[in-house]
Design a protein around this nucleic acid. Sequence first.
DNA 1: GCTGAATTTGCAAATTTGTCGCAATTTAAT
DNA 2: ATTAAATTGCGACAAATTTGCAAATTCAGC
Lengths: 138, 138
Amino acid sequence: MHYDTLKSILKAGGASLTQPRKIIFDLMLNQGPQSMQVLVRRAKDKVDRATVYRTIELFERLGIVRRLNIGWKYKIELTDAFSGHHHHMYCTNCGRVFDLPDNPMLETMIDTVAAKSGFSPRGHQLEVYGLCANCSKA
Amino acid sequence: MHYDTLKSILKAGGASLTQPRKIIFDLMLNQGPQSMQVLVRRAKDKVDRATVYRTIELFERLGIVRRLNIGWKYKIELTDAFSGHHHHMYCTNCGRVFDLPDNPMLETMIDTVAAKSGFSPRGHQLEVYGLCANCSKA
DNA sequence: GCTGAATTTGCAAATTTGTCGCAATTTAAT
DNA sequence: ATTAAATTGCGACAAATTTGCAAATTCAGC
């Protein structure tokens, strides 16, 4: 079922697929980028606060989630392996987050520019901020 | 002297150039991106923790510094006005931060892609992570 | 399916991070 | 120099994150 990929990543990392980890993974699947605060609140009654933190740390180390900077505090979301590669546009007026339209050429160019000085890029994060279509009108 | 630009920005914002603000500005000039934790520690004995936070908040509001997501926690650095527009490459092995080589075409393309869906971009942040030239060899 | 070793969890306490009110000090403009 | 306004430092807080440890869960091998 839908924990197969998760399970194999955990096993490869020497960790096991536990009840709390399933719950947190599901919370990540069903919601977009979310803050720790929100994730902890959503997991409340099922998973202890400390376990949420420990799990996210583990998930990040194994490349299951990543943290990104949207607005002031960081948020967590599933990595490309689960949600597809994408970037974000953050509306500084209404606070909503949108996906940046796909553009393979842009992706390539980012890695190319980075490689110019001998760096070996393994990934990147891009956040555009400004006004969304709606807020631009007002 | 070298506080001229800083002073005029502060004055334009209705704030004054004080001793603590000079100290913090200098700490930003001499170091690259740094975490609040480190900045607070470096300013210790000269500037109170609360003042560091208040100052960074002011500096951010006036566009003197910005915060960015490198590694785990956010970091602070001087804005483009002081350090020129640039992005970062973060080496996940040694933890060092490098500037991404300038590339005007990349900058343009980012805004263009964002504008595609009606978004009005006003800025962006890009972070590439991977291995630096040095760590690639090992 | 059961069993033991190893991992993981929940709980409570500690630490860290960021904020706030207010009296004392510093700044800037006369 | 003088003074009003802005700013600082100093607790004291509130919120976020981490840690130690005993109890519970997972998993591999029977």
